[in-house]
């Protein structure tokens, strides 16, 4: 079919998928095939969501748990960006640093964020520090890798021009490598945010005494399936919102650079 129809078509198909999913869910839940305690229907989950907006569960309302999760997320994510992006740019510039850091980084990055949980809990506790380290371990690799690749792919003519003008290293990184690598860096920040958010909830399932993940584990032990599902929906929704925000930022930066 022609390209012009595509967006409308895709919207209809996407909507059909969602309606189908909720319909099937409602149907299975209503049929009684699965015990009500294990599979509440969509309406029940929605009701539970509304209730959790103002009633406390496992030490807080849903917004309070979310706020606590987002706080940890922000700390771990900003730390990952603040360390990963400059380090990546420096590695892109200095061969020596690249040779030293790259093998170490390659060895560490296959340790999944969830595998950091025991260590993080031992060292930094289950309150704030531990989860922050786990988020960091999820968000850091894309931040570093994309800044590094971005810096390595800068047109060498720009670097030569800067060197010929006597540009000192800090300025070369800030005014040449950084702007030239921006598209790649922003893509890394977006991927890192997604991975960081995913790791956070994983961390909270095990450590921490607040947060959405914690709320879900507490609900699980009381077989409050509707609450568990509210938690999943909240995680998904916030993840999507973070992604949309960073995609918008990425698109804006691309548009600005595309004019160049």
């Amino acid at each position: 079919m022609t390209g012009a129809l595509d967006p409308a078509r895709r919207m209809v198909l996407g909507l059909a998928g969602l309606v189908g999913f909720f319909g099937l869910w409602a149907l299975v839940a209503a049929s009684g095939l699965v015990g009500k305690a294990f599979l509440p229907g969509p309406l029940e989950v929605a009701e539970r969501l509304v209730t959790l907006l103002h009633t406390s569960f496992a030490g807080g309302t849903l917004p309070q748990h979310l706020a606590s999760s987002l706080q940890r997320f922000s700390a771990g994510y900003l730390l990952a960006a603040a360390v990963g992006v400059p380090l990546g740019l420096l590695m892109g510039r200095f061969r020596l640093l690249d040779d030293i850091v790259s093998p170490l980084f390659d060895a560490l990055r296959f340790i999944a964020p969830i595998a950091w949980v025991p260590f993080a809990a031992l060292w930094f506790g289950t309150g704030f520090g531990g989860p922050v380290l786990i988020i960091f371990s999820g968000a850091f690799p894309p931040c570093l890798l994309n800044a590094y690749r971005g810096a390595r792919q800068v047109d060498p003519r720009y670097i030569e021009a800067a060197e010929m003008l006597g540009t000192p290293t800090h300025r070369l990184i800030l005014e040449v490598l950084l702007p030239a690598a921006t598209p790649s860096i922003v893509a890394g920040l977006r991927i890192g945010a997604g991975l960081g958010w995913q790791s956070l909830v994983g961390a909270e399932l095990i450590v921490a005494s607040t947060g959405v993940g914690y709320m879900m584990v507490q609900a699980q032990s009381g077989v409050a399936t509707a609450t568990v599902m509210v938690g999943m929906a909240a995680i998904g929704l916030v993840g999507v919102l973070i992604d949309i925000a960073l995609r918008a930022l990425e698109a804006r930066i691309h548009n600005r650079l595309a004019r160049a």
């Binding site: 720009y158 021009a161 010929m164 006597g166």
Partner: peptide, 20 residues
């Protein structure tokens, strides 16, 4: 041994910084 501002270069392909 290295580039430097004592030897200014005008490049065949300009090499202006697009973001400046």
């Amino acid at each position: 041994r290295e580039p430097g501002p004592d030897r200014a270069v005008v490049f065949q392909q300009f090499a202006l910084f697009p973001w400046k």
